[in-house]
């Protein structure tokens, strides 16, 4: 699954800020750490602010801080702000959708999407942050090495 640039920026920002909700970081601080564009990140942070996930702090030493609940906010909550995560077949019909093969493909892709959504809904910010210290499962480690 390939995420859009804005989604990756949003995840990096929310997760980095949520590591220590009392800490304030500027868009530049986060952008430098993750090697992303600070201009792009600034736009993403505004969207995250409107969604109530981060808040900006003005003044000297100002920046952004996490304003959600680490045990309640899920990765799905963040990703759905930037990606169309609805079922593939719910979007505008495309050529071939009405054929028998088109319908079968639609059902298959729905199966894939359902699992992806369920996974993202079940991982909270707290769980993802904890998982940074967990060992990588063997079957995922091998798949990762194969891709690299």
């Amino acid at each position: 699954m390939k995420m859009q640039k804005a989604t990756r920026c949003a995840l990096f920002a929310v997760l980095e800020l949520a590591r220590d909700p009392g800490r304030q970081l500027s868009a530049t601080d986060i952008a430098e750490k993750y090697g992303i564009s600070s201009n792009h990140l600034a736009k993403v942070l505004r969207d995250l602010g409107r969604a109530g996930l981060v808040e900006s702090v003005r003044g000297a030493g100002g920046g952004y801080r996490f304003s959600g609940n680490v045990k309640r906010v899920t990765l799905y909550d963040i990703i759905q702000l930037f990606e169309d995560v609805g079922a593939d077949c719910d979007t505008a019909p495309e050529a071939g959708d009405e054929t028998d093969i088109g319908k079968a493909l639609c059902i298959l892709m729905q199966e894939v999407d359902d699992i992806a959504r369920a996974t993202l809904r079940s991982v909270t910010v707290d769980t993802l942050l904890k998982s940074t210290s967990w060992p990588v499962p063997q079957h995922l480690d091998q798949a990762h090495k194969a891709e690299v």
Partner: peptide, 20 residues
């Protein structure tokens, strides 16, 4: 169940991940 978010979130918080 794929929509059992309560239990899925709990087991994930305990370190469980999708398996092979």
């Amino acid at each position: 169940a794929v929509d059992d978010n309560l239990n899925m979130s709990f087991f994930r918080s305990q370190g469980m991940r999708g398996g092979p």
